[in-house]
Amino acid sequence: MKRITILTGHYGSGKSEIAVNLALQKKLNTLVDLDVINPYFRSRSLYEMLNKHGIDVIESTIENASGSDLPFISSRGSRPFVNTDLMAVYDLGGTRHGAKLMKQFDAFTTNSEEIDFLMVVNIYRPETETVEKIMTAIDDIESASQLRITGFINNSNLMEYTEPSMILKGQEILESVGKIKNLSIKYTCVEEHVECHETFLGETIILRRYLAEKALAIGGKYGKR
């Protein structure tokens, strides 16, 4: 794993849940939440729990005003690029609008060998359901961020309706995109409740939905309905 992982993708692709899981499982010491788009379900809402695990949360709201929706980037946001002791995951807002925030860091990111810029894809999100749509999304994000995507995270799922075959279908579509774009799958996410014996491309992350659990306050498997 590179020292810095930056997560991008469509909104609702699972970036924030993955950022939290990566930070905890890979024992990173910094989570930078640069989501200036979402008003709810932001990784910074878990800062207390993350702090307890020794993870510093750098966030994009004014301190003590986490309920605000003022787009605000902390100057601490660039710290992981400078301080090589930091192992960080960046959680961007969705689409090109969230990705363009990376532009301000291009002095640090250009030609850096320490950064993975990974695109999270769930093919069950209608905006990224086909090879063509994913290709367009890549172009959008790369032109807005001025940063090359270096790999995929396959997060294809339908929450409690997820079956291993769906993850494999996501893998197949991402492999097709990867052939054209010369990109590979770095991680595959499997939600913890999914019964699964298959193996997938890249490293498998068992995903717990910390944010959904907290925000929906319904515990367990997204509440019983």
């Binding site: 609702g12 979402n38 008003p39 709810y40 379900f41 069950y124 339908l158 929450m159 409690e160 309706y161 959904a212 925000a215 929906l216 997204y222």
Partner: peptide
């Protein structure tokens, strides 16, 4: 309420 607007569900 805002939660239904913001939440994800199949």
């Amino acid at each position: 309420d805002g939660l239904i607007g913001q939440m994800m569900e199949p």
